[in-house]
Design a protein around this nucleic acid. Structure first.
Lengths: 135, 135
DNA sequence: TGCTAGATTGACCTTAACGTCAACGTTTAA
DNA sequence: TTAAACGTTGACGTTAAGGTCAATCTAGCA
């Protein structure tokens, strides 16, 4: 059976679960993207699922093409409810921006995917011809 | 009416059409990713649609997350028919690899897209409540 | 013929996002 | 209680992917 997932963990465990290195996590902390839930008197950083989720969100935003700095300026809006109508409108604006970037990127990947499939089919055809032609 | 697109062009034009800078094109050339169709006696590089297509393919592979070096080692297989059955099988292997990377990336974007939509809906709800609650 | 915009090479510079290493402290299972 | 595994800070290194600048040359239109 698998090891139970602890409710609280140190940097190494968090790193393993998010598939990054501890160095990356510290780096994100320096940039203000992610801080440990708690800091023991030993100096050790302790994290929870919250931070894991945040780390994964950072990954998504990176995949979207944002720099860590850009991520730093928007990541909170994924984890704190906006205050006031203005705040909500601002958040909406940014989320909609991310949405349209995501869609654009997805569509371009879909195009590539179609091209790849055609390409593959073509080479498969060539291969079949070659194999039936000269056995 | 729009300017007609020339059958042959210099680096600036190619750059504009591919939405990159001339520097980028020269950089790709240094790395062996893209060479001009022709080189005038003046030293000017001249390109055609072929190179534009290639440049766009490089962009797709970049979006997929490949480094320029990795791209350099596979780009040709998008533009030259493989020789021999072995060659074809090899190409198929690589194309299938790209396909599964593309699909994985697309699926992760789709997840993010769904999350974004939920998030947007949530904030919209909050906003509506706030506006009807305290006008 | 003479401008102006664009091209050439070469060299050095920049930036983001970590990697690596040293010197040292902490945890924890044996 | 000690050894192995893990964590800490600090500092420096690396790599990819171009940016920038200078000095010089070319194209092509008025």
């Amino acid at each position: 059976m698998d090891a139970a997932e602890p409710e609280v963990m140190r940097i190494g465990e968090l790193a393993r679960r998010a598939e990054v290195t501890p160095r990356t996590i510290r780096h994100y902390e320096e940039l203000g993207l992610l801080s440990p839930g708690e800091r023991a008197s030993s100096g050790y950083r302790y994290y929870t699922e919250r931070e894991l989720a945040r780390l994964n969100k950072i990954g998504q935003l990176k995949d979207l093409g944002l720099t860590l700095e850009e991520i730093g300026s928007v990541i909170d809006l994924y984890f704190t409810d906006p205050t006031g109508a203005q705040g909500k409108r601002k958040v909406l604006q940014i989320l909609r921006g991310h949405l349209s970037q995501t869609q654009a990127r997805r569509e371009s990947l879909e195009r590539f995917e179609r091209e790849l499939k055609e390409n593959i089919a073509k080479v498969e055809r060539l291969l079949a011809e070659a194999e039936s032609g000269q056995p």
